[in-house]
């Protein structure tokens, strides 16, 4: 069992702060995530055709691309929800190709999936209470969360599905913070939300990143995320076509998204 051995070998998982000896041993900052020739697909349809990627620890790493490029699949593969069909995923120095999603989550990886990252039929309070595998008492978690997201405290008895889209995403963010992740994956936070709300949410994300969490954010709508990202890649049709600093990436985006008219 790869998964269980992984869990025992690394109780602290991908928490960068938990392994001081590593930073001392190497010259540059070791990447928290390294993908080589990663492939995955649905049945006979290959969606990711060999992704090579290196994500440095700390900061916000933006993954951009038009719809259908394979961004969401990439995140699902990273979180262990979707099988790898080729290549390797190395997370904080360990290969995690076949790790189970719950084990990954317990070792510090958190994915906020596309569209709905909350349990819609549970109340805000119950959504937060589900996170007890860290040993913290529910009351403690709630207290910390409400201190940080006061808006949620007002809604604690409300069923999550009846809140607005922005509040749901805020709850999803709050819950992920409560799991104390080392690596946070966010899939299309902006989906179906008004631009103003998206900006507010990304401010929260930037705040989370400042506490030392590495964030990988998948976005189709590039501008807001590029404003806070420390580096970015563009994926189209399952391949990385561009990588660099946010400014460089932004200048070339329009052509990549809308294609090139022959002559």
């Amino acid at each position: 069992m790869t998964s269980s051995s992984m869990a025992t070998a690394s109780p602290n998982g991908v928490h960068p702060t938990a392994e001081p000896e590593r930073a001392a041993g190497t010259a540059g900052p070791e990447p928290i995530l390294q993908l080589s020739d990663l492939r995955a697909g649905y049945g006979a349809i290959e969606v990711l055709h060999g992704i090579d990627l290196m994500v440095p620890a700390g900061g916000i790493f933006a993954v951009l691309g038009p719809n259908g490029a394979g961004k969401s699949t990439l995140l699902k593969v990273l979180a262990g929800l979707h099988p790898v069909s080729g290549g390797t995923i190395v997370m904080a120095g360990r290969e995690v190709n076949r790790a189970r999603p719950d084990d990954l989550a317990r070792s510090g990886l958190c994915l906020i999936p596309e569209g709905r990252g909350v349990f819609a039929n549970l109340t805000v309070e119950e959504n937060l209470r589900l996170i007890t595998h860290l040993g913290a008492r529910p009351a403690e978690i709630e207290e910390r969360t409400y201190a940080r997201f006061p808006q949620l405290a007002v809604r604690r008895k409300q069923v999550a599905g009846t809140m607005s889209g922005g509040e749901q995403q805020m709850l999803a963010l709050a819950r992920s913070v409560a799991t104390d992740p080392g690596l946070l994956l966010i899939d299309e936070l902006s989906m179906g939300l008004a631009p103003r709300i998206v900006e507010m949410l990304y401010e929260l994300v930037a705040e989370i990143a400042r506490t030392g969490v590495t964030v990988i954010a998948v976005e189709q709508f590039a501008r807001t995320i590029l404003g806070i990202a420390s580096s970015a890649v563009v994926i189209t049709t399952g391949r990385v076509v561009l990588a660099g600093l946010p400014d460089e990436v932004e200048s070339k985006l329009s052509g990549l998204y809308l294609g090139n008219v022959a002559d």
Partner: peptide, 9 residues
């Protein structure tokens, strides 16, 4: 699957 993503069983 969200339960899995939260480390639940």
């Amino acid at each position: 699957s969200l339960v899995l993503l939260n480390g639940g069983r």
